[in-house]
Computed example of a mutant assay.
Amino acid sequence: MKSMWWAFWVVVALLLSATAVVSRVVYQTPAPPSSTALFESIKAMLLCLGGSGVILSTYFTAVNAFVQRRADIIQNTFHLLASWDDPHLFQARKLTRRAKETREDTSNNGLIEEIEKNEDLKNSVILVLNYFEHIHFSLITRRIDKRLFKRALGATVVDIIDRFMPFAKKQGDQVVADLIALKKLLQEE
């Protein structure tokens, strides 16, 4: 934000300098017979100041758009993080905790079988995979702040991707590709 104000004052200084130069040049050129050099110089200065108003208005519009975009990214990040606490995702998260505790005892086929035999659980796991796809697209379109998201849920998401990958492989190549891409995004510096 400080750099925006610094840039503002630089733009103001340049505009005032240009206004002074234009006014001086107009003052030094011969005025038309029906006017004076001072009057023409004042006219040129006022025209330059009017143009400066347009330029400064455009600058503030651009700065506001930048600030609003940044605020929207933060808001989207918080919204996506809050979605993680959705009750519909809770059942799948319970399974992942249980799977983490018994990972050595449960084979990939056992995990898939456990998910497949319970329709509610299967729907919850698919919902989690859809949530991860939403995260992936939000990251690649820069709709959310990657650094904040990684800090809050990055390791958890990577851990769950690893646990549900055997089930995801049954859902199709695109699901697997999206999960691998998301995992890579969350693990890179």
Rank of each mutant, 00 (worst) to 15 (best):
residue 8 F to N: 12
residue 2 K to F: 11
residue 120 D to V: 06
residue 123 N to E: 10
residue 115 I to L: 03
residue 79 H to S: 05
residue 102 T to P: 10
residue 150 K to Q: 13
residue 55 I to E: 15
residue 172 G to E: 07
residue 168 A to Q: 00
residue 32 P to Q: 11
residue 187 Q to E: 06
residue 128 V to M: 05
residue 165 M to H: 04
residue 63 V to C: 07
residue 161 I to M: 15
residue 133 E to R: 03
residue 105 D to M: 05
residue 83 S to T: 14
residue 13 A to H: 11
residue 102 T to N: 04
residue 144 I to D: 10
residue 49 L to P: 00
residue 152 A to G: 03
residue 159 D to P: 00
residue 113 E to F: 08
residue 139 L to R: 11
residue 108 N to K: 13
residue 30 P to E: 12
residue 28 Q to F: 04
residue 32 P to H: 03
residue 176 V to S: 01
residue 112 I to S: 03
residue 9 W to M: 10
residue 83 S to E: 13
residue 69 R to Q: 09
residue 99 A to N: 08
residue 26 V to N: 12
residue 8 F to H: 02
residue 91 Q to E: 07
residue 58 T to W: 12
residue 143 R to I: 11
residue 82 A to C: 05
residue 65 A to F: 03
residue 166 P to S: 01
residue 111 L to M: 11
residue 4 M to K: 11
residue 149 F to G: 00
residue 146 K to E: 15
residue 167 F to K: 00
residue 150 K to R: 10
residue 129 L to V: 06
residue 151 R to E: 15
residue 53 G to V: 11
residue 34 S to G: 08
residue 53 G to T: 07
residue 17 S to A: 04
residue 80 L to T: 02
residue 112 I to K: 15
residue 7 A to H: 05
residue 123 N to K: 09
residue 24 R to C: 07
residue 117 K to H: 08
residue 127 L to D: 08
residue 23 S to H: 14
residue 86 D to G: 07
residue 70 R to W: 09
residue 36 T to P: 00
residue 183 K to A: 08
residue 167 F to H: 00
residue 161 I to T: 06
residue 153 L to C: 02
residue 110 G to L: 02
residue 60 F to I: 04
residue 43 K to A: 08
residue 93 R to A: 11
residue 39 F to L: 12
residue 92 A to Y: 00
residue 116 E to I: 04
residue 22 V to I: 10
residue 65 A to S: 08
residue 107 S to W: 05
residue 177 A to W: 03
residue 51 G to K: 02
residue 38 L to P: 01
residue 124 S to W: 10
residue 176 V to A: 06
residue 114 E to Q: 01
residue 43 K to F: 01
residue 107 S to G: 14
residue 74 I to C: 09
residue 46 L to Q: 12
residue 83 S to D: 14
residue 87 P to E: 11
residue 74 I to E: 07
residue 155 A to K: 15
residue 156 T to M: 13
residue 148 L to Y: 01
residue 168 A to K: 00
residue 53 G to K: 02
residue 115 I to E: 06
residue 151 R to W: 06
residue 54 V to Y: 01
residue 57 S to L: 06
residue 176 V to M: 05
residue 6 W to M: 03
residue 75 Q to C: 01
residue 6 W to N: 06
residue 170 K to A: 13
residue 78 F to A: 12
residue 183 K to Q: 15
residue 91 Q to M: 15
residue 107 S to D: 12
residue 166 P to W: 06
residue 30 P to M: 10
residue 47 L to D: 06
residue 86 D to P: 00
residue 93 R to L: 13
residue 34 S to D: 05
residue 82 A to G: 04
residue 151 R to K: 03
residue 83 S to M: 04
residue 3 S to R: 13
residue 60 F to C: 04
residue 119 E to G: 08
residue 21 V to M: 12
residue 178 D to F: 05
residue 146 K to I: 07
residue 127 L to E: 09
residue 48 C to A: 14
residue 10 V to I: 08
residue 141 T to L: 07
residue 167 F to Q: 05
residue 35 S to G: 07
residue 39 F to R: 10
residue 100 K to I: 15
residue 89 L to Y: 02
residue 36 T to S: 04
residue 130 N to F: 06
residue 108 N to M: 09
residue 71 A to T: 10
residue 95 L to E: 08
residue 123 N to I: 07
residue 71 A to P: 00
residue 142 R to G: 04
residue 119 E to Y: 03
residue 180 I to K: 09
residue 48 C to G: 06
residue 82 A to H: 09
